[in-house]
Design a protein around this nucleic acid. Sequence first.
DNA 1: GCCTCGTACTTAACCGGTTAAGCAAGGATC
DNA 2: GATCCTTGCTTAACCGGTTAAGTACGAGGC
Lengths: 344, 344
Amino acid sequence: MKPTIRDIAEAASVSTAAVSYVINDKPGVSDETRRRVLKIMRDMRYRPNPQARGLAARRTGMIGLMIPDITDSFYVNVVRGVESMANELGYTLNLCTTHGDGDRERDVTERFASGGVDGVIAMTYRLTPSELKNLSSRRFPVVVIDNPDAAGWVPSLVVDNVELGRTATSYLFELGHSRVGFVHGVEGSVTSESRYRGYVETLNSHGMELSPELVAYGDFAYDGGARAARRLLSIHNRPTAIFAANDQMALGVMNAAAELGLAVPDDISVIGVDDIEASCLVAPGLTTLRQPTWEMGACAVQTLVDILKASEGQEQGEAADSRAISKVFQAELVVRGSCIARQP
Amino acid sequence: MKPTIRDIAEAASVSTAAVSYVINDKPGVSDETRRRVLKIMRDMRYRPNPQARGLAARRTGMIGLMIPDITDSFYVNVVRGVESMANELGYTLNLCTTHGDGDRERDVTERFASGGVDGVIAMTYRLTPSELKNLSSRRFPVVVIDNPDAAGWVPSLVVDNVELGRTATSYLFELGHSRVGFVHGVEGSVTSESRYRGYVETLNSHGMELSPELVAYGDFAYDGGARAARRLLSIHNRPTAIFAANDQMALGVMNAAAELGLAVPDDISVIGVDDIEASCLVAPGLTTLRQPTWEMGACAVQTLVDILKASEGQEQGEAADSRAISKVFQAELVVRGSCIARQP
DNA sequence: GCCTCGTACTTAACCGGTTAAGCAAGGATC
DNA sequence: GATCCTTGCTTAACCGGTTAAGTACGAGGC
């Protein structure tokens, strides 16, 4: 059987308390005893039981991570950041996927909150800000990523999608394109709407009016992008560049263009968002906007752990500075071959 | 503060033991009391503390999941299967990525074994079979996925990569191709070697000799595939079809071919393995072999939980049927546009 | 009427740690 | 020499559950 703290205590002829102090690097043990105990722990291959530790110390050393879909590279990259930082800070991850189902999200958070984890990093679009707010407290922090609605209610990390839209559109303008199409994601998506706003703002700042025939709806998937492209590219004064709200759609646009006999980038430039793996596996490579997903994941853990650390000090529980910290991240342009200067 | 079992017991005027019996659906409580306790639990929004439960019952309800890389779609799809089934069976997941680092793998399993989880599902190529065997026991089962070396030592789930190689190669032969190139992954990869064996066997069964100039090494990545393709396609009697050991390389092959002025599939057919997202986002779509990743993930959990259940009965610990169950899965051909019958 | 047995509980030990409080010994302070 | 800190430990309560063993009570058998 695995050795327990009692076995170690016995072997070292000290009390379990002393061993506990050694384990946790607390004062009150002489250097000599400390060394002896450490040696015995090593010799007996002792590892404290995390459950018992957690129970007594009221911490689990685990962070709950809730994402809609582990297939989507956006989330996956956030997970990587979370994993890295969590690991560095001595936490371990409890992963749950929700498939964007609100009930499942409630279920999972409930389970998390019931003592399974010390805090939660959530990517959710279904839970309302007040639900999140209710769940979250100083001793059970919830950090939300990529949900602008939650900002102000709970600690949040978001990408500035309006600015992202501006960056993408400005880039195309700088290349000399003036008729730029836009492909939305699913209708009602806050993310897509924000990118659209950046698009419109940039048009306006260049003294242009929005042409409704240059805007189409996709569904964030390849086929939707292709459909939208067939629409946009069949109008009489067709755009010379298309900005799609994500890469899957952008790739759909590229292939639909090819089917229509239009070469990318010579006849039409295409830009996407996300920098998914496929974007550098196609020819020409897709120019896109990379969101700092890894960084956000890492930052989320950092934020969570900071709150946890802060709560250790004061016993207040709720009071004090309960305003939610929000952090805004900017996307970065990744230039590949799918956009070129407009042919004169 | 959150209610504990004592609060419930008090509110229901029974002992904590009675409440525990209710929680765990055990006999020894009258229907009336049971109902009363259940109602109170609901009213007080009581959820038993998983740590305390685990400590007392010697189970955590968690499964450790160790994968090399969460970016690779093969692993991700396994994770999805694991997640689904674990969820269904009432287990929660503890995810760790190792980046294929042996020390980290040892570290993680060590941590898992020290009481964090009830069992482990591991995708590892660094730990030796005997290390795995040592780690694994009836009360702490380890199920290994995709490591043929481990089969026979611990319960294992593997894909029949030789058969996969045969399927891919036969398919190309059936389309009339007789000069078929092969692109290896990194040198020494068991997976790649197995696929290669299937390739060679199929050649032989069609009465052909292996032509060494038709075999090249990639590195499982896009660039390696492209490099290999440039080699294979520049020989004087070039292949009419290429079988790459994974999709990333196959896409590299496709693009390199295009750069050389060869059309896919008209001049050259290409087949890959894995069915990554990009494979259906390119034009033409990449014909590939899909491994039953989801199914393997789900099956791994099933196997693990079966062993756990079985161990509850007998107290033997080690003895009895300690032979490792192994299960072999077959890949499935996914036909898209990148392979066509050889032009006469 | 007594014994036995099953049912519906309760009691209390235990899981493996943490931690507040207590205490003995030795040195400094006055 | 009595008092007061420190230092270095030990004791024991506690975290929130589970579970073996014990008990009280009513029904059934003889």
